[in-house]
Design a protein around this nucleic acid. Structure first.
Length: 287
DNA sequence: ATGGCTTCCGCTGGAAGA
């Protein structure tokens, strides 16, 4: 089962990148953030294209900002929109949606930015993370906590720690809040697989930051131990950050072995699997 | 570097992002 998370920075703007990427990577489950669309607008924009690719969709969006989604072709059960008990700013924001997909509790999260340390938004971020921790603690160990955490877990996750002194995303309180979540028994699958590599998932649009690989790793996939034990690959899909009209974030992808009694869902042939072309390739003939 | 891009709504500017 392939699970991906991607802050698309507007689903509407990203359609020309999102659909080909789905066809190329063929993830079973996709967590999206910053869709920036109401649920009606999302369905009008992408409902048909996603249904044609056998995805069911769980949405929690709003009109201008935020917005999260889960796409799944391995089932989509017990959908919970939002984070019950989470604070608002001041109103509830569309920053969390959860569903059970292929036997795994999947969370698609867009953690508040925090803006500046000690601002109201920063304290909102910390309180929101505390409620997230309690929500995950109350759930199953077969869990994937995915999304834009807006925290770089360690100094190795920013291009220049000195450039971030006094900034959000790297403060001790934010990292402690993230640690209280991962202390539940979650594993940072990309860092576990690439312990010493320079791995980022976000690069500012400006000043050639991507070209110079000056970024941050703030988009995470955190796996409960039983899921982490089944991880076979985990990486950042940098190709999706290249070219024309990218998001400023790249997708993060994890491949998980099927559980011994798991159901991977319907088998869908690849788009190229069709009638063999005559003439160019000689197929073995039965005698 | 003081936001250097990109997006949104909604109107041509201001806010937000990290």
């Amino acid at each position: 089962m392939r699970v991906a998370t991607w802050n698309v920075n507007s689903a509407k703007q990203r359609v020309p990148r999102l659909l080909p990427w789905l066809d190329q990577r063929r993830p079973e489950v996709v967590c999206l953030q910053e869709t920036k669309l109401t649920d009606d607008a999302f369905r009008a924009l992408l409902g048909g294209e996603l249904a044609a690719r056998d995805y069911e969709v769980a949405l929690y969006g709003e009109v201008q900002w935020n917005g999260v989604a889960i796409l799944s072709r391995v089932g989509l059960d017990n959908v919970v929109r939002g984070l019950p008990g989470a604070p608002g700013f001041p109103h509830q924001e569309a920053r969390a949606v959860a569903a059970t997909c292929g036997g795994v509790r999947v969370h698609s999260l867009y953690v508040p930015n925090g803006r500046t340390p000690d601002s109201d938004h920063y304290h909102y971020k910390l309180e929101w993370l505390s409620v997230l921790r309690d929500t995950v603690a109350a759930g199953p160990a077969d869990v994937l906590v995915c999304g834009d955490m807006n925290i770089a877990p360690a100094d190795a996750d920013v291009f220049d720690p000195d450039a971030y002194v006094g900034q959000t995303h790297v403060t001790a309180a934010e990292r402690a809040a993230l640690a209280r979540l991962t202390d539940l028994g979650l594993h940072d699958v990309v860092r576990d697989r690439w312990p010493d590599e320079r791995v980022f998932s976000y690069w500012d649009y400006r000043a050639g930051m991507f070209h110079q690989d000056l970024g941050m790793r703030i988009d995470l996939i955190l796996a409960g131990t039983p899921v982490a034990d089944r991880v076979r690959a985990a990486w950042v899909d940098r190709a999706a950050r290249k070219g024309t009209g990218p998001s400023d974030h790249a997708p993060v992808i994890v491949d998980i072995d099927t559980a011994p009694d798991g159901d991977i869902g319907p088998v869908v042939p690849p788009p190229s699997a069709g009638t063999p072309r005559r003439g160019r390739h000689k197929l073995p003939q039965a005698r």
